[in-house]
């Protein structure tokens, strides 16, 4: 390791990264359990393996920057500040959920956190992010719109229209591709003529870079630098964070299209224990402290599950609410 963590951030920030990644992992594993029990239904896309991206990227943004994501967005919402218990309640379809049980796993939203939604049509969030960036610029605000998406989204017309539009109108959009190599079961080189996604912005004169998405500090540094650049220049930028999902596309997918050997290589790069080892090695934390963080996360997630279980279902007359103003 060339860079020491302590040279980048103070200890408390580094520990917060660890804490957030562990919380996201525990949350997702609890979701899998509750899905198996039938408490969570519908589609459920888990983030396990990709935590360094959500945690590092969110830390690199300002609190008033907008965040939009796709349908694998529990971690982004939680890291941005959504209460795990209200996210869990949403997944349980309960009235106490962040969207009153109307959105579910794929449509988390909290405007008080500037978390502007999970979108479940692949690439649907691109123009919305561009529009939010336009509104910010029009109103003279300094915030940007950070638009997360997967490698599967880059062959949608929306991606190209969004790149073109944001560059043409000079809008502050930070595109963050979470390249986990698979659009459901189709590997990126089987769907993209240019599988190095960051290279695809050259046709739009948008600068871009690739970052190790399994390294939370590397993601943080790249996103912070890029976000500052976007703010300074008022123009879009794209980051490709190379990562991996440890589970299938959704709970319905056993991921048989990936070899066990490939899976093992990536498991060895798991962003959480690797980061934990670095923290211990550099003396930022003791193993005991890290274990304590794990315990705390597990109990927070257990509380979230209990909260969700005990929460009321939406009343029947809610079905006609929130459609029109």
């Amino acid at each position: 390791m060339d860079v020491t963590l302590r040279g980048v951030l103070p200890d408390r920030e580094l520990l917060r990264f660890y804490e957030q990644m562990v919380l996201c992992r525990e949350f997702e594993e609890a979701c899998a359990e509750q899905y198996a029990k039938g408490q969570i239904t519908g589609f459920l896309h888990l983030y396990s393996g990709q935590e360094a991206v959500a945690v590092g990227a969110t830390a690199g943004l300002h609190r008033d920057d907008y965040i939009l994501s796709a349908y694998r967005e529990h971690a982004q919402a939680i890291v941005r500040g959504a209460e795990p218990k209200r996210v869990m309640a949403e997944l349980f379809g309960r009235a106490t959920g962040v969207c009153k049980g109307k959105g579910g796993s794929m449509h988390l939203f909290d405007p008080t956190l500037n978390f502007m939604g999970g979108y479940a049509i692949v690439g649907g969030q691109f123009p919305v992010a561009v529009g939010l960036a336009f509104a910010a610029k029009y109103r003279g605000e300094t915030r940007l719109a950070a638009c997360f998406f997967g490698d599967g989204a880059v062959n949608q017309g929306n991606f190209h229209e969004g790149l073109n539009w944001s560059r043409l109108w000079e809008l502050p959009v930070l595109f963050v591709c979470e390249n986990n190599f698979y659009g459901i079961g189709t590997e990126v080189h089987r769907s993209s003529a240019v599988p190095d996604i960051h290279k695809r912005t050259c046709g739009y004169d948008i600068p871009s870079e690739k970052v190790d998405g399994m390294d939370v500090v590397a993601v943080y540094q790249a996103v912070k630098r890029a976000a500052d650049w976007v703010r300074e220049h008022g123009r879009p930028y794209l980051i490709e964070a190379v990562t991996y999902r440890f589970r299938g596309h959704s709970m319905a997918d056993p991921a048989k299209y990936r070899s066990p050997a490939e899976h093992e290589i990536w498991k060895a790069r798991d962003p959480i224990p690797n980061f934990g080892r670095r923290l211990v090695a550099e003396g930022v934390a003791s193993q005991g402290q890290l274990d304590g963080i794990g315990e705390k996360a597990r109990s927070l997630v257990a509380e979230a599950v209990t909260f969700a279980e005990e929460s009321p279902w939406p009343a029947d007359d809610e079905v006609y609410e929130d459609i029109y103003v």
């Binding site: 907008y66 502007m116 649907g124 691109f126 123009p127 919305v128 992010a129 561009v130 529009g131 939010l132 960036a133 336009f134 509104a135 910010a136 029009y138 109103r139 719109a145 017309g157 929306n158 229209e161 969004g162 073109n164 539009w165 043409l168």
Partner: peptide, 21 residues
């Protein structure tokens, strides 16, 4: 004036509306 990108013409408006315009 916009590019000939109908889905984005509408989608940018969705985002801008969400952003207070």
């Amino acid at each position: 004036d916009t590019p000939i990108s109908e889905n984005t013409i509408v989608g940018v408006a969705v985002g801008a509306a969400m952003g207070g315009l």
